[in-house]
């Protein structure tokens, strides 16, 4: 899975370039995340390509946030599609991870 990164100040914006984040590719995602984690502890996941995410994908996002918190960093999300957002609301991810409409708003929040 491709994760493209862009450094803006001390924040790294990670574009999640997959339509699906489910049990079939969360391990791959975690590997990609680990290499980014070496460079930055303030991340924005740009999610607009992701049409479907399952509980495993959600678990992975929570895992990422926990890792960043340990490094005194933070995770923010932006560009979340409607179906994905519905799931986030169901399992309250939206209360645990900050979600913004746009990348700019997410960047401002650090």
């Amino acid at each position: 899975m491709e994760l493209s990164t862009e450094k803006i100040g001390d924040v790294t914006v990670v574009s999640v370039l997959t339509e699906v984040l489910d049990a079939s590719n969360t391990e791959e995602f975690k590997t990609g995340f680990a290499s980014i984690l070496n460079e930055s502890n303030k991340l924005v996941f740009e999610m607009s390509h992701v049409k479907l995410i399952d509980s495993s994908g959600c678990g992975t996002l929570l895992y990422c946030q926990k890792q960043l918190n340990k490094l005194n960093g933070a995770l923010k999300l932006c560009g979340v599609q409607e179906t994905v957002r519905t799931l986030f609301e169901l399992i309250r991810i939206d209360r645990v991870i900050d979600i913004f409409d746009s990348k700019e708003e997410a960047l401002k929040a650090f």
Binding site: D54, C58, G59, L62, Y63, Q65, K66, L90, I97
Partner: peptide, 19 residues
């Protein structure tokens, strides 16, 4: 029951299915 405070990253599957 699923835990929603961010401390658990598993255990949501059935909750999602039933919803």
């Amino acid at each position: 029951e699923p835990v929603f405070d961010g401390s658990h990253d598993e255990g949501f599957g059935l909750h999602i299915i039933t919803h």
